[in-house]
Nucleic acid binder design. Structure first.
Length: 428
RNA sequence: GGAGAGGUGGCCGAGUGGUUUAAGGCGGCGGUCUUGAAAACCGUUGAGCGUUUGCGCGUUCCGGGGGUUCGAAUCCCUCCCUCUCCGCCA
């Protein structure tokens, strides 16, 4: 959510940044409602002041037994009563109209974000590691998994339909190992506090992080009006909803390992094979709550925390700065980390780290008390995957596959799989 | 799921229609006193919005939302949350 006052005072910049996102100017629409609201509020408050003064007089008159004076004042106030009554309704109506508009306006991009319509305009920040070469034709992860007999899409489809997978044996264990490894790294070395959050949330939590009201079709909803979280960003960021935090407590850094649920509405036909795009996947998420001064540096730090997972797994990747057209609704700047997948012969997104400024904080009313300052300010929020576990599993399988169909387990994961070094086909 | 009790400022806690502008206490901040500190005493202490160059003024906020009334923390409706007991349950 953007600040109306800011839009009022910087309408040209507001429209220019919307244009960077490929949107039409909205300041006329916003300011029209804002003007209407302020004009109405002034009139309403004047009437309320009059009423309050009269009511006080009535109280005094009654206390002193002067019924005639009391009645006269009551008659006087009765005239403005209907205006106050309808005026309060009007105020609500205008506020709702303004909020309905503001809540669907995306965050404004930073000046350094490249302008573009889609991922082709994303900017390469750095490439890390060599693209591995194979002496055989590398397979895609689902071929590897299925021939190992440990990855089954048909069994999953039988009970759940498309876009689900069932892992078993060493692959299920490998997935668990990845989560443990990631959590240990982010909590033990990067200072994130581990959280085990609710995975069903109410609509206001999703409003706070920006998934609602605009993107409801991407979510799963229960019969109890709960939503399944599409990412742990939702419960982790909402920890500070409606809170006032002392500046000395910032930054807060949270991490959680959770399943994520996405309906993938509108992505029919994309990544239909394999584990890349599922309705349900595991993810280790990082969220930082910072002061405005810290948030820029925190994005670099968080991206580094995600990259470290790939470095230790020995996987090659590149970091992309997303262009305006590819950035999410709440982001001011986003780095995507793309891991090299030999089977697909391309880089695929495995993490996305975003700084949201005060956009989410405003929606969820998360503030802090700046030291020495008089007024409360909104915190800044950041979120990033550290990493998407399913896609990391895919990357390990494709990058560590051997000619005989087996898969070497990266060294850092071996403590988590009982020392096992290789996953071999069952019949081998 | 059934029955009951609650939700008031940073915290505790009073307040059942009108000098409540939310008592009192704790904590915080400032001051007096003191070599310094403590104690004691005095003062001060929330958020949002509108308006204003500024000082300020106005308005809203007692879990959320709505209603009754000239006037609501207080009465009514509704939703949320917490606690206690019972039932069911990993």
């Amino acid at each position: 959510m953007l600040d109306v006052k800011w839009i009022r005072e910087n309408s040209a910049e507001f429209d220019a940044k919307l244009k960077m996102r490929g949107l039409e100017p909205l300041s006329p629409k916003v300011l029209e409602i804002d003007d209407e609201r302020r004009a109405h509020l002034a009139a309403l408050q004047e009437a309320q002041a009059k009423r309050n003064a009269a009511s006080k007089e009535i109280g005094k008159a009654k206390a002193s037994g002067d019924e005639a004076a009391a009645q006269a004042a009551i008659d006087e106030v009765a005239k403005i009563k209907s205006f106050i009554q309808s005026g309060e309704d009007t105020e609500r109506e205008i506020n709702q109209r303004l909020e309905a508009l503001l809540s669907t306006i995306p965050n404004l991009p930073h000046d350094d974000v490249p302008v573009g319509a889609d991922e082709d305009a994303n900017e390469l920040v750095r490439t890390v590691g060599e693209v591995p070469s194979f002496e055989f034709e590398p397979k895609e992860h689902f071929e590897i998994g299925e021939s190992l007999g440990l990855m089954d899409f048909e069994v999953a489809a039988k009970m759940s339909g498309s876009r689900f997978v069932l892992l078993s044996g060493a692959l299920a264990r490998l997935e668990r190992a990845l989560t443990q490894f990631m959590l240990d790294l982010q909590t033990g070395e990067h200072g994130y506090t581990e959280v085990s959050p609710p995975m069903l949330v109410k609509d206001n939590a999703l409003y706070g992080t920006g998934q609602l009201p605009k993107f409801e079709e991407d979510l799963f909803k229960t019969t109890t009006e709960h939503y399944l979280i599409p990412t742990a960003e939702v419960p982790l960021t909402n920890i500070v909803a409606d809170c006032t935090i002392e500046e000395s407590y910032l930054p807060r850094r949270y991490t959680a390992f959770t399943p994520c649920f996405r309906s993938e509405a509108g992505s029919a036909g994309r990544d239909t094979r394999g584990m890349i795009r599922q309705h349900q996947f595991l993810k280790v998420e990082m969220v930082s709550i910072t002061s405005p001064e810290q948030s820029e540096a925190e994005l670099e730090r968080m991206t580094g925390c995600a990259e470290e997972v790939l470095k230790r797994l020995g996987l090659s990747y590149r970091v992309m700065k997303l262009c305006t057209g590819d950035m999410g609704f709440g982001a001011r700047r986003t780095y995507d980390i793309e891991v090299w997948l030999p089977g697909q012969n391309c880089y695929r997104e495995i993490s996305s780290c975003s700084v949201c400024g005060d956009f989410q904080a405003r929606r969820m009313n998360a503030r802090y008390r700046p030291e020495g300052a008089k007024h409360l300010k909104f915190v800044h929020t950041l979120n990033g995957s550290g990493l998407a576990v399913g896609r990391t599993l895919v990357a390990v399988l494709e990058n560590y596959q051997q000619a005989d169909g087996s898969v070497i387990i990266p060294e850092v994961l071996r403590p988590y799989v009982g020392g096992k070094e290789r996953i071999a086909p069952l019949n081998a």
